[in-house]
Structure formats: C-alpha cells, structure tokens
Design a protein around this nucleic acid. Sequence first.
RNA 1: GCCCCAGUGGCGAAAUGGUAGACGCGGCAGACUCAAAAUCUGUUGUCCGCGAGGACGUGUUGGUUCGAGUCCGACCUGGGGCACCA
Length: 845
Amino acid sequence: MAVTRYDPKKIEPKWRAAWDAAGAFRAETISPKPKYYVLEMFPYPSGAIHVGHARNYAMGDVIARFKRARGFNVLHPMGWDAFGLPAENAAAERGIDPAAWTRGNIDKMREELKRLGLSIDWSREFATCDPEYYGRQQALFLVFLRRGLAYRKEAEVNWDPVDMTVLANEQVIDGLGWRSGAPVERRKLSQWFLRIGDYAQELLDGLETLDRWPDKVRLMQENWIGKSAGLRLTFPLVGEAGEAGIEVYTTRPDTLFGASFLALAPDHPFAEELAARDGGVAAFVAHCREGGTSQAAIETGEKLGLDTGARVRHPFDPERLIPVWIANFVLMEYGTGAIFGCPAHDQRDLDFARKYDLPVIPVVLPPGEDPASFHVKQEAWAGPGRLFNSGFLDGLDIEAGKRAAIARAESEGVGEGATVWRLRDWGVSRQRGWGCPIPIVHCPACGMVPVPEDQLPVVLPVLDFSAPGNPLARDAAWRAVACPACGGPGERETDTFDTFVDSSWYFARFANPRAAPPIDKAAADYWLPVDQYVGGIEHAILHLLYARFVTRALRDEGMVSVSEPFAGLFTQGMVTHETYRRQNGEWVEPATIDFLHEGATRRAVDRATGEPLVIGDAEKMSKSKHNVVPPAVIADTHGIDAARLFVLSDSPAERDVQWTSAGVEGAARLVGRIWAEFDAPGGSGDAAPELRRLTHHTIKAVTEAIEGFRFNSAIARLYEFVGALRGSGSRGPVRREALLALARLVAPFAPHLAEECWSKMGETGMVALAPWPDYDPALAEDEERTLPVQINGKRRGEIRAPAGASAAEVETLVLADPEIARRLDGMAVRKVIVVQDRIVNLVAG
RNA sequence: GCCCCAGUGGCGAAAUGGUAGACGCGGCAGACUCAAAAUCUGUUGUCCGCGAGGACGUGUUGGUUCGAGUCCGACCUGGGGCACCA
C-alpha cells in the first residue's frame, strides 16, 4: 500500500505557489485557440469566505480547468462587488472609514480565495469601489443620459423620521426602521431612473435565445417583465367640458357591459384635483397614504373606497352613468392608475361591490347556465362562457368579445388596443454615501449639468458616518463645485448609484480591466458573451435583467457587439448545515459539540458540560445561527481538495448540499485512496484488457458528466475507477495509462492532489496545463454484453451476447437458452422485443 | 390568488421509455491492534425462505406502452417565484 501518507497541509500550498510562479492561469489576449469565458458572480467583500463561496467558485473552477484542458483560451477572472450597506453599518458602528474596512476585507478574502486553489487570472482583479472602475461607470451614465435612457422624476423612498435617513427596503422590518424602530414614512424625492422599459419587448424576446439558461430563470424573468395585452379607453366625465374623461386600462374589455364603478388610485391626478376642492376626498386620500405600501399593510389591508360623487358615461352606452370612486388598492404605477370594476367577473371587484353595495351585473354566462337564473353571489365567475347583457357583444365567447370590444372602441375613437408591462423603469438613485457618485452638478443658473467626461471620475471624499443620513449631503466642501457649463457656483448631486449598476457591466470590464475607455471594444468583442456564468438563483431576476438591459444599451451605443451578456447560466444551490440549540434555545457552534452514536441514532451533547442539545434542520450557514464552517478550518484538517470534492459530490450542483463532517471525511478518504494508487508500486497480476476498457469508459463518463454539470456523477465515476484500479492489482503500461488518465480526470476537482500525482508519475509540466485525456469509443464499451431477459415485462434471466448483436441473433440466442425455456413453462412466445445492447422482452401467453 | 418545480432505501442521491437504488454517508460483520482510533475487506430496499429462490417496491390514483421513477390525467404533500398588476 501507500508508502507515504498524503499531507494536504504541505502539498496544497506547494502547488499553489507553483501555479503562481508559472502564471498558469493568465488568459491570453490574442490566441489562436477558441476562447472560453467562465465567470462566477463576484462576491461582496463581507470579510470572510464561507463554504458556500467555496462551492460556487469550485464549480466555476471545474469548468475553467476542464475547458483549459480541452484546448480553450480560458478567461476566469475575479473581482469585488465592493459598494453597499454593510460597510456603512460597520463605519457607523465602529467609527471607521468604509473604504478602509472594505479594502481590509478584500485583502483577507483574496488570501482565503487563493487557498481554494482556484485557477483565476488574478492580474485582472478590480473592485467596484476603485475610482478607476466607478469613474468609468460615471462615463457610462453620461452615455445613458445622451441616449435619453436616464431621467429624473419624483419617487417615493422609505424615510426614517428619527434617524432622519433614507432606508433601503431591507432596512424596513414590519414597517419599522431597523435601528430606530420608528414607523417608516413614505417620502417623495426627485431621483434618477434608467429606461429599462424601452427594452421590455427586446428583453422578453431575447429570453428565447438563451437556450443554455435554466427554464426556471427565463420564466421568472418573463413573469417579471409581465407583458399584458388589453384596451385603454376613456370614460367621458359627466358635466365636464370638452374631451375630459378618465382613461382606464383593462385586459377584459369583453366585460365592459358589466362595469358598475370606476376606481382611481389615491394619487391619480383627477383624485388630487377633487381633493383640492373637497375636504372629504382630501381626508380619504391622506388616509390611504398613511397606510403606506408596507408589506403588512397590503396583506392584511382592507379594501377602502370613497364615492367622489363624480359620474362618467359608459363609452358604449352613453345613457348609462357610472360612479367614480377612489380606492386604496388601485396603483398609480400600473396601467393608467384607474380601473373599471366588473364585480360579476373579478373577485376583488366583487368584494368591493358587496362592501359598498354596488350593482353586480353578470355578462359572461358559464357553460350550462340559464341566463334567466344565473346569479353571482360570493364568488365571481372568471371562467369561460358566452357574453350576454352586452349589446353588440352578445353571443360571443370571451376572446372574440375582447377583439370586438377593442375594434369598436378604436372605430369610435374612444380607446385603443394597448400593451402594458409590469416592468417599471429602474430607479438607480440611492441616498447613500458608500456608492458610485452620480456625476451631475446642480446649478442655479443652468439646472442639472452632467459632469463632462474629462472631469471624471467624481471621486468620493473620506466619508464621515458619525452622524445619521447621507455623508455626501452633509459634506459642504465636497458638494461645492463650479458649474461645468457656466463656471458659477454649483452643487454636486449627492445620490449614488444602486449597487446593481456596478454589477451590470463588470463582466465587460474584465475583458481588459486596465483599458482607458470603460470597455475595450476589441477585447470585449473577443471575450463576450460570458460562455458560462455561475451564481445563485437569488439573482435570477434583478441582477441578470439589469445586466441584459445595460448590455443592450451599450450595444446601441456601439460599445459592445453582443445583446446577451451571458450565453450560459448555471444557478447553483447553497451549502447548508445542521443547527444546534440548547434547551433554552441558544444556538451552539458545531465545533463545541460531541456526537454520540447509538446504533442508527445520533445525539448531540455539549462537549464541555455534557448537556444534551437539540439537533435542528439544516439551514443556510449564517452567523446568527452559529452554523458557519470556515474553509480555513477544513484546509487545516482534511485539505481543500477534500472540501472541493465533497461540496461537488454530495448533491447535484443546482441543489442545496448539506455540509457534514462525515461527508468531508469520505471525500478525504477518496483523496487518500487516489494518492495510495500513485504511491503504491503496483500489483503483480495483470488485468490489462479490463483495466484498459474501464479507463476509456471512465474518461468518457467523466467528460460527459462535467459537460452536463453533473459533478456528483463525475466524482462517483472517480470513486469506481479508483476502487477498480486497486482491485485489479495491475502493473505495466496499461496501469500507467490508467493512472495518467486518473490524474487528469481528478485535476478539475482536486487540483493540488492531481499535480502531486502527476509529478509522482515523472511527468514534466503541470497537469493544470496538460490536455484532457482522449478516449477510444470502441474501447470504452464491453465486447460482450449481459442482456436481461424479461418475460411479459418481468425479469426472468439473462444471456450473454456480442456487443451490437442484431435482433435476429439475440432472438436465436434467447430462444435456445434452456433456462429461458424452463421459465417460459410451455407458454408460446408471441413477440420478441430486442433493444440493441440493452434488453430483451418476450411477450408470451 | 396566479405561475413554476420537486416527491426514489435510515440519510445525500443515481438511472437517453429498457436490470430501480450507481456512488457516498450511516449501520452491521470481519481483518489489523494488548486495546482504541485510523485504515482495509465483506455486507446492507422491504417481506417470505435454512437455501436456491420468490413476492413487493420510486407520494396517491387512473391511463398510454411489450415495458413507466421517467410520458399523459386527477389528487396529496413540500419548496420556490410573483402579487391589491386591473
């Protein structure tokens, strides 16, 4: 057996130093090889790498190392999504500079990441808080401004009245500010928006081309974009002069004759107009605003309405007058901010009508119902049927009714078919200090003036978080600046960009991160799109949609050539860990626990006190639950290779994996067994043909598994191969071929081990740069097959047949087999089904 | 409420419509050891049988098929996304 014990603590750092020294993972700028761009979503520098990061980057690394071995010029970069709230919190709590805190975290995490043995081109590293990066982002914003894709409008923010600061949505907990505990108010501020809506149709259509994205993500984006087709039409106001009317949007124009009220959003212009002259309306509108739009208010919120007294005429029946209400459930941001209510065929409208005693007029007759006796009681009918009580629409089905109603509205000039999107324009202003400053100067004479490109970057000052609020807004010296247009005194914009802006173009910057322009066109044309993007499902919508939008906007400016930034997307699962609590509910660290096994049951006790602990569900690792396992601890015990093998082997890559110490020990055993094969002198027997076949079979299986992201299956094949290698007791050139193949197959998963094995075989150069092993398809399969034989679908025996034997040959063999004949027990064979090389089924009776 | 996904041994899981449970964990037995740990070997879906072997078995229930974990219908359970979206 093995002569030496495999010691990852010594071996792993040795090979990392060797890769570094050789610059092994530097991507070539110009190369005759085909390119392959692998990218994992870049991390926020929180301060520590956890096992979840390790799994994420290990997956990308497997792909990167595999593609490199397959002859691709691979780009596998790393950077830092470095702006954001945690730095501000740390700064406020500890009175330190957020920049220094972030830089410190980056330095720490870079070292931890390097310990994972990732094949990253570190020469391209950057952080979004580098002025060299965010200054170029400011230049991109100028492009958006120039193209009319950026604009300013009033929008609501969460305002903490005690801390006097704007809160991010995640800082509002149950309607209260997370620090002050004060009820959060809605405040209107003038803010910057990007016109993602201009690209709604293209972003929707583009999803069809993303055939290497998970269906789930495409579907989520489709729903988020939320295209809906309907009718926009105007109800004329009674007693108002001329064209005055209220425009509504509906997806159910077929039910127009069932309209019994109109409802306006509380902030609808006409509602505000009414409020200005009617105290009752004003009070109601104010009341609606108070309730706010907090999650709790919406979920438990009562449907409230107020009859304004105004009346409109039905567009298809001018004699019919319809009351105009204001209702708290109507949103100004969607459609026209006004709806018509058809209580008979919409549950929410029905609830509202019952509450305020409005008429319920059925206009869709469900199949099998009698028009004379059909009534809607407490449940609206949203199903199919024939229209009735509906004038010119009578007798039509719902779809025909929609078309007819739209056609009539258009011919009479009262409305038109319209498309409405759920997708809203992207609000990018944040009233935060630790972010990319928006490059605008407010000048009393010239208004809003963009900072000219040659005056970029607008650099952040040293931020003082000792007082509440946005430090940029408090920094008078930083704010004061000469107007770029007139030279008079101006003030800098104090909003910074949403951090999603930072992450929506970084992949293009990696193509040449030291280039003078934001994006080096030639380099981007070579590297983009990202061939394989890897990240968490939590970014399925926002980050991935914003990046798709920004890429298109930059394409229209001629800065990149692609429309889609990410050709392939893989969404990986999380790493979870069991949780442990004392009887009093306190969380306990796994490292301080002893586990007692009694047969198949397992108990946890406190190592120090022996107190029995409650073993809870596996949950995402988090500090608050004390179930975090830092990779450094694993590196010191089992080695990083074992950790990489374990997190990739125990579950399919897209699913969560539960971290267990037993599981890592199993992976560490595999590491030891692989090493033992290389370290052992070899057996005395010779099973050459079988080993040769198994070698080729394993190469084929592992290759296909990696290509399909089935890393768990790939590693299972490695386990089998090592087990067979040990059992074969083989020696000689066939064994050497098998070991060299094994080292190369292991390299993407356990790269340090693979290098050590490779060098043990006397190979020069590094396995990280060695080509992937080829297999001979003919050698990968057995020459003779065992075919199960079924009788009437039940397995009743098996026969041996040459690979590729024809149906007739197999049939002859089966029918001649005495055991099969016995099992047939005199039954006549009516039909023989032969699936080549797989199975035989006899239909008998 | 709408949309989507998943249910397979004690556990994580595998399986182009073709031998269900590969591989790992855990368990059991054995080897090595004074002993333990580590390591190695064997075994391990359930039931019946001394055994050869047999029956059953992929959430439930129907169907398609020579053949269904896989395809289709209904239902149950769990998970995810969206949500006063007109």
